[in-house]
Nucleic acid binder design. Structure first.
Length: 272
DNA sequence: GCCCAGGGCTATG
DNA sequence: CATAGCCATGGG
């Protein structure tokens, strides 16, 4: 349950802090990770990832180490902007998250800043999740659908209008049904997710890309929209349909990796 | 007090 | 299709 893994190129920091995944805590140079009912720690020194409380096979899956990383980056590196993003955040990996936690995480994300999304998820786990332990540290796992029953139960979560989305999703779908979407073509899987209340294109695409292996999914949020408009459309306003068409043609079947890099790049760039 | 935040839904041109 | 107003809550 503990050991080390040699990975290159790899950046634990960028992979966790880029906004694709929410339940981590930085303690010194170590990251405490919480995913569904797991809790474990990671830290990186040069090309080595040191882990504790988790199996190596889980990490290989979680960080998508079986992807042909170099080939994917080469395929999306189609212009100078994405080139800069890739080289500035070299080693940033797409995560393969738990689909249930991923869906609910992004159901909470609408019209919220990332620190607030994290706070909502933490409170959701505290209210409905089961206790989990790592060494002498006690925390809460991510609640299963059967543990999220009524809006009343989620009062302390302070998720506002998103509470109904969470309860409805818990009644309508579970992890097994989400995993079954992997067998469908992208447009079908997307349509299927969008039947859930609170799931539009953006939340569907986040779930498909960050947890269900649809690497062509390219979530378009406010940051990506501003960036695309400024750098690819000469500052002119364009409709969402046109943007979707452009990115799939421009970046190709691994466009989702491009989204990951561009989001991190534009958000970090503009923050200061 | 006002404005905005990894949106979605609904009603309108 | 594209836009406007609304949704609940917290932080700047």
């Amino acid at each position: 349950m503990s050991g080390q893994l040699r990975i290159s190129p790899f950046s634990l920091k960028e992979s966790l802090e880029c906004g694709q995944f929410f339940r981590w805590t930085k303690i010194g140079d170590t990251y405490l990770i919480q995913s569904s009912n797991r809790i474990f720690s990671l830290h990186q020194k040069k090309d080595f990832l040191y882990y504790e409380g988790v199996e190596e096979s889980f990490l290989v899956d979680f960080f998508r180490l079986e992807d042909d990383f170099d080939a994917i980056l080469e395929s999306i590196e189609q212009d100078s902007i994405i080139h800069q993003a890739i080289h500035q955040y070299r080693g940033l990996r797409l995560l393969r998250q738990d689909p249930w936690e991923c869906l609910l995480s992004f159901l909470c994300s609408s019209a919220k800043a990332i620190p607030q999304i994290r706070s909502i998820l933490e409170e959701l786990c505290r209210s409905c999740g089961k206790k989990i332990f790592f060494k002498n540290y006690q925390s809460y796992g991510f609640p299963e659908p059967s543990s999220i029953r009524t809006p009343f139960q989620l009062k302390s979560v302070k998720a506002g209008f998103r509470i109904d989305y969470l309860v409805r999703a818990s009644q309508c779908i579970d992890r097994k049904q989400l995993l079954a979407l992997r067998r469908l073509p992208y447009p079908e899987a997307r349509k299927s997710l969008m039947k859930l209340p609170g799931v539009g294109k953006k939340v569907a695409d986040c779930t498909l890309l960050y947890s269900l292996d649809f690497l062509e999914a390219f979530p378009i949020d406010t940051w990506i929209r501003r960036g695309l408009q400024e750098f690819y459309f000469g500052g002119k306003r364009v409709g969402e349909k046109k943007m979707e068409g452009f990115v799939s043609k421009h970046f190709g079947p691994f466009a989702g990796y491009a989204q990951l890099y561009l989001y991190h790049f534009w958000r970090n760039d503009e923050k200061k």
